[in-house]
Write a protein that binds this DNA or RNA. Structure first.
Length: 288
DNA sequence: CACCACCCCTGGACGC
DNA sequence: TGCGTCCAGGGGTGGT
């Protein structure tokens, strides 16, 4: 559920609270949410193609133990905490992942806890464990192993980028926009909202989308993402910021989650169906 | 290669 | 109240 705006909200919260601090101790409660060098592809127990090898214990330094936090980066829906040593921990929130600062102990589904020099606690929690942590020895390794495979960040997407991505693609535009290797950061909510704002049916073949529509879509997507970031993430059920606060419901979703209800623009009943394996909502009158 | 179906996981909503 | 069932969905994998 966390999409780009929620992840950016977390990034800003982390940057403000942990950059410049040193990590005193790292405790791993669940090894299988972590992937490090030497782990089988996909990590331990993250796919059914598991090996018999016992997972190697994660060294504290791999999770920035003893390191000073230098920066917190984001690409699409992924975060990276960068240490002064150059080491990097990439954080995926998946559906229900959270990074909390100063949370109480005894939380359920807390998989990794960092304690900083000043005593501040940092926790990675994830009930469904679709998220995880990926450790790299450098930012360059993170990029070559992981981020280079992602498309351009949706917050800065341009009409030209979208035209390139849509060209000759025989897939519904919704599926293309959800594909992180083509555009990074959009999930189900913001794709539906952006397509509505641009008047494009989610089922349209990407290659049939005109250059003018790509321009509208790039503009609307950036605007919607920017507004959502300013509002602290759009918040569905379980998203919370680094201090556990709910992201305000200040941004009403226009189509997402409103199937069967009247379109806010023209009052036509919103339709819903599966597109690209995702529940998709649109207005049959406003979108063509 | 491109596309797509399926699976991972758990909490919350809902029906009886 | 409590139990069962369904659904949410990012992204990895394997099949077509």
């Amino acid at each position: 559920m966390p999409e780009l705006p929620e992840v950016e909200h977390v990034r800003q919260g982390l940057a403000a609270s942990i950059v410049g601090a040193r990590v005193r101790r790292v405790r791993v409660h669940r090894r299988d949410v972590i992937v490090t060098d030497g782990d089988p592809p996909g990590g331990f127990s993250r796919s059914r193609r598991t090996t018999d090898a016992a997972p190697r214990r994660v060294r504290s330094s791999e999770l920035l133990g003893g390191d000073e936090i230098r920066d917190v980066l984001r690409h699409g829906k992924q975060l990276a905490i960068v240490g002064a040593s150059g080491r990097v921990v990439c954080v995926h929130l998946g559906m229900t992942g959270r990074v909390l600062v100063g949370a109480e102990s005894g939380m359920t589904h807390e998989h990794v806890r960092w304690t900083l020099e000043d005593g501040t606690r940092l926790s990675f929690c994830d009930a469904r464990r679709f998220g995880g942590l990926w450790c790299y020895d450098s930012e360059a390794s993170l990029r070559s192993a992981r981020w280079d495979a992602l498309g351009p960040d949706a917050l800065h997407v341009t009409a030209k980028m979208l035209q390139r991505v849509f060209a000759s693609r025989a897939r519904p535009i919704k599926a293309v926009l959800l594909d992180q290797t083509l555009v990074a950061g959009l999930g189900n909510i913001y794709v539906d909202e952006s397509l509505f704002a641009s008047g494009i049916l989610p089922t349209r073949m990407a290659r049939d989308v005109t250059d003018g529509e790509s321009r509208d879509l790039a503009r609307h997507a950036r605007r919607i993402l920017r507004r959502a970031i300013r509002a602290g993430g759009s918040t569905l059920r379980d998203f919370v910021g680094v201090e556990g606060q709910k992201g305000g419901y200040r941004l009403r979703h226009i189509v997402y989650g409103r199937a069967g209800q009247p379109c806010r623009r023209c009052r036509t009943t919103l339709e819903s169906d599966q597109v690209g394996q995702r529940t998709t909502v649109w207005c049959p009158s406003c979108q063509t």
